[in-house]
């Protein structure tokens, strides 16, 4: 599990990615920091427009015009990735870090066999010859649980089911034993029984290779199931970060709390779902202060100033490892302002 003293496999500092549209600059990712360690899974959770997918695409440098990474630092085992030339970085992609995507239906090239597409990765990075690559393809397809890999390798993507295609994507991504796997909504397009298979597979492969995994999802269930560390994103920022148990047992940020209380669960009855009022502010009307303030039930004067992501200053229930939260409530300033709302009430999510 989490080993604190390891240097992180991936270290992202103050990442900023913007889209330059006719309506002006849209800061899709605005100052994001996180780390992922060996054998550890970081879950990034957020709703649409939170910037979670753009964050993962930024790490892979797959942002296309009019988008651009405009600031920050991304390190893979100490290697500064943003300093690499395009050609240098292409040698890392699919080799030292790889990615699987949400839509297994459209993420494979329809005109090549799946065997060809998996082989391409090892041919590029491991400089394997045709026969050797073929052996490797069969080995990988077997590893990800594809039945009859010899004949499946000759199939075209449209001949496979969604779950099988995602397995092929995983085989492709893991063929070069990357240090980091990024999974962007890997099971969102799949049925739940297939989702369970795929999540299980990723976990099993992580255990055997020790790779770091970054999983991006909107589904808190998937997060609880797979992640060790969690970052909650809202409007381009990380608003809360903690290990998975701390986050679920004691969500601090009002947004995290709202999110958790608004999921209808299949194992518990709730009469009225809690709702987060309003919608995510559009980039043009992004508040200069706390970005969640308009929708926050606790918003106060001080929330017009932008809060930073920090460990909660006021000790909560004796927990020392409470992660970090971007909210004024957990700062000395909040207490000093004499706000009527006490921390304890917020923590109960009342």
């Amino acid at each position: 599990m989490t080993t604190k003293d390891h240097t992180p496999v991936l270290k992202v500092e103050n990442l900023q990615t913007s889209f330059f549209t006719y309506d002006g600059e849209v800061k899709a990712v605005d100052g994001v920091d996180f780390e992922v360690r060996e054998n550890e899974t970081l879950g990034i959770v957020g709703e649409s427009g939170s910037g979670k997918s753009i964050t993962s695409l930024s790490v892979m440098q797959l942002i296309q015009s009019p988008g651009e990474i405009i600031g920050g630092k991304i390190e893979l085992n100490g290697d500064d990735l943003l300093q690499k030339s395009k050609a240098q970085f292409a040698k890392y992609r699919g080799n030292r870090l790889s990615m699987i995507f949400q839509e297994p239906m459209t993420s494979l090239n329809p005109v090549f066999t799946v065997g060809h597409q998996v082989a391409e990765t090892v041919k590029i990075h491991k400089k394997m010859g045709k026969r050797e690559a073929h052996q490797e393809v069969i080995r990988m397809l077997k590893l990800v649980g594809i039945p009859a890999p010899e004949s499946r390798a000759k199939s075209y993507p449209h001949e496979l089911s969604g779950g099988m295609r995602q397995r092929v994507m995983i085989a492709m991504a893991l063929a070069c034993e990357p240090e980091l796997l990024i999974a962007d909504e890997p099971t969102t397009a799949l049925d739940v029984t297939i989702q369970a298979q795929i999540l299980e597979l990723i976990k099993r492969l992580q255990e055997s290779t020790g790779m770091a995994v970054m999983i991006i999802t909107h589904d808190l269930g998937v997060i609880a199931e797979t992640a060790d560390q969690v970052a909650v994103m809202y409007a381009g920022e990380v608003v809360e970060q903690a290990d998975v148990k701390t986050l679920f047992n004691r969500p601090l940020h009002p947004y995290t709390q709202g999110l958790m209380n608004s999921i209808p669960r299949h194992d518990v009855d709730v009469d009225e779902l809690e709702v987060i009022r309003g919608t995510v502010p559009s980039p043009a009307e992004m508040p200069s202060g706390c970005r969640f303030a308009q929708r926050c039930p606790y918003a106060s004067e001080i929330c017009n100033t932008h809060p930073s992501l920090a460990a909660p200053s006021n000790n909560i229930d004796g927990h020392t490892d409470a992660g970090a939260v971007r909210c004024w409530i957990y700062t000395d300033e909040w207490d000093a302002e004499g706000n009527p709302m006490k921390n304890e009430e917020v923590q109960q999510g009342s």
Binding site: A87, A90, N95, M99, N109, V111, M172
Partner: peptide, 26 residues
């Protein structure tokens, strides 16, 4: 703009081959 072209880039395929192999064939 298709997803599989992005996949090709994510695999580390050189931009030249992304265009002339993965994109052009389609």
């Amino acid at each position: 703009g298709e997803d599989y072209v992005r996949t090709a880039r994510a695999k580390g395929v050189k931009e030249r081959f992304v265009i002339y192999k993965h994109a052009l064939r389609n």
